[in-house]
Amino acid sequence: MTFADKIAKLWELRGLFAESLGLSLLIAFGAVVLGFIIGVLLAVVRIAPKTNPVIKVLDKIAVVYITVIRGTPTLVQLLILYNSVLVSFKRMPTNLLVPIIAFGINSGAYMAEIIRSGISAVDTGQMEAGRSLGLSWITTMRKVIIPQAIKTVVPTIFNEIIILVKETSVVSYIVLKVNSEQKWDLLGMAEKQGLATPACYLVFLFFAAILYLAVVMLLTALQHFIERRLKKNER
């Protein structure tokens, strides 16, 4: 098989690769949204003054959560969730929720620490000013502190998103279904097609790598755009 033949084969399979890239991105997007929500909630719990017992208990839970999730491999977490807690999702006709929840839970732990560092970096005077005007702690958090914290952590959050996009490649370890039909993520598709046409295996892998790289470069451009916009907002 000449190189031109291999490229021709790749061209033939372009629809399948595009579809699998879409699936990878969908999983990553869902996980980022879920992870961000979990991250903000955990960060707020971690940073809240430990005055009432409910907050104290929630804080302990948050600490355990962050420790366990950051301390174990993503693939292990995915397989455990797939085969135990999320086993009923696994049997559904469309089981994309399994990887979305698994990666979301995973990413939430990292996002929590990122956002917490952002909140800590906001001057304490901002909270005092809010409280002195009669606003509650949570209102001041929502309207003043978190918007400023997010701004400072945009680069780090994007770093986490980029890692997450690439990390979704481990879903090829589980069976993905859409409308009861088996589907593959980007790496999974490259593997599957590579097995069917071994001569093209390396070309498919390179192609997958190029697609991941392209997505990450787009995300980086988006990050710089957002950073510029946020900066302009203050001038």
Binding site: D123, E128, A129, R131, G134
Partner: peptide, 19 residues
């Protein structure tokens, strides 16, 4: 919170909301 709403406070470092 109800009391603070009726007591204005001005700080050394202004503490305007930057966002």
């Amino acid at each position: 919170n109800l009391a603070r709403a009726k007591m204005g406070m001005v700080f050394q470092h202004f503490n305007l909301f930057n966002n």
